[in-house]
């Protein structure tokens, strides 16, 4: 565990605003967002569809320039850089994981992981070796020469994770990394990302709708209408019956029992709980939120 938090945040957004279009057609996708991610930290950004999550992530990843505000990646202000430096920053300091994997279909698993290293002119032999090690660590040692079309969704996403860390970036940005996966592979990928953050001291930002991913987060941020607010413990709770994490504002209902308020994902769970509360509270009252 090299979890030393350096003084310099791996990602810092200061008052970032992004407006698409102009005049009457203007859409303020992100408004006055400030954010700082430390090394080794996993931050999950949640929010409804259209709230500006992808926009914010693209700006953080030097793929999109903001209308105003500044972005710092690994201590360098990137919104002043030209295209050439921007691609260099993406290549060396940022790793991306996408919902739709975005592997290159013509390349094998190992070649896909080698792509960023090839782009960074890492000698081929070394790149191959590093890619091989990475994939073995990701449990894909037997899948090195498989093409993306021959891999399952979870395997593809693991290859994508391998590719994102190939050039040892300090920052990893993931947009809905579990969005196309079943819950088991989704959980596996989420755990992988967390381990990478903790063991390699990388800052990871995950954008997701998926409540289950909150489990791996050090911090959950809520984006709504382009504005960011930090989740406090009381905005989330775990349904004691179906064990689903629920957003308090969206809960189907609640039940007060022994000075504790419990929130439910569905009325069915609420009903079951109210009939036999003790049955569901064997492990003691469920802690709420993070």
């Amino acid at each position: 565990m090299q979890n030393e938090k350096t003084a310099v945040p791996v990602l810092e957004l200061k008052e970032v605003t992004k407006t698409y279009g102009t005049g009457r057609a203007a859409v303020k996708a992100v408004e006055g967002v400030s954010l700082s991610i430390a090394a080794g930290e996993v931050v999950v950004i949640m929010g409804p569809s259209g709230s500006g999550k992808t926009t914010m992530l693209s700006i953080s990843g030097a793929l999109l320039s903001p209308t105003s505000g500044s972005i710092w990646v690994a201590g360098q202000e990137i919104n002043r850089l030209g295209t050439r430096e921007l691609s260099k920053t993406r290549l060396r300091h940022i790793g991306f994981v996408f919902q739709s994997f975005n592997l290159l279909p013509s390349l094998t698993a190992i070649e896909n992981v080698m792509v960023p290293m090839t782009l960074a002119r890492v000698p081929k032999r070394e790149a191959r070796k590093r890619a091989e090690n990475l994939l073995s660590e990701l449990g894909l040692g037997e899948r090195l020469t498989h093409y993306p079309s021959e891999l399952s969704g979870g395997e593809k996403q693991r290859v994508a994770v391998g590719r994102s860390v190939a050039n040892k970036p300090q920052l990893i940005l993931a947009d809905e990394p579990t969005g196309n996966l079943d819950s088991r592979s989704g959980h596996f990928v989420a755990e992988l990302l967390r381990n990478i953050a903790k063991e390699q001291g990388k800052g990871i930002v995950i954008v997701s709708h998926d409540m289950r991913i909150v489990d791996i987060a050090d911090r959950v941020l809520w984006l709504e209408d382009g504005k960011l607010r930090e989740e406090t413990g009381d905005s989330f709770a775990t349904d004691p019956v179906c064990k689903m994490r629920v957003q308090i504002a969206d809960a189907a209902g609640f039940h007060d029992y022994k000075n504790e308020r419990y929130y439910f994902d569905s009325l069915k769970c609420l009903k079951q709980f109210s009939e036999e509360p003790e049955k569901y509270l064997k492990g003691g009252p469920v802690e709420s939120g993070m």
């Binding site: 050439r84 940022i94 975005n102 792509v115 960074a120």
Partner: peptide, 15 residues
């Protein structure tokens, strides 16, 4: 799409 991915990963204009 492939080129978009390469670009996102950090391929330079020349590449």
């Amino acid at each position: 799409r492939d080129y978009g991915v390469l670009k996102a990963v950090g391929a330079s204009r020349f590449q």
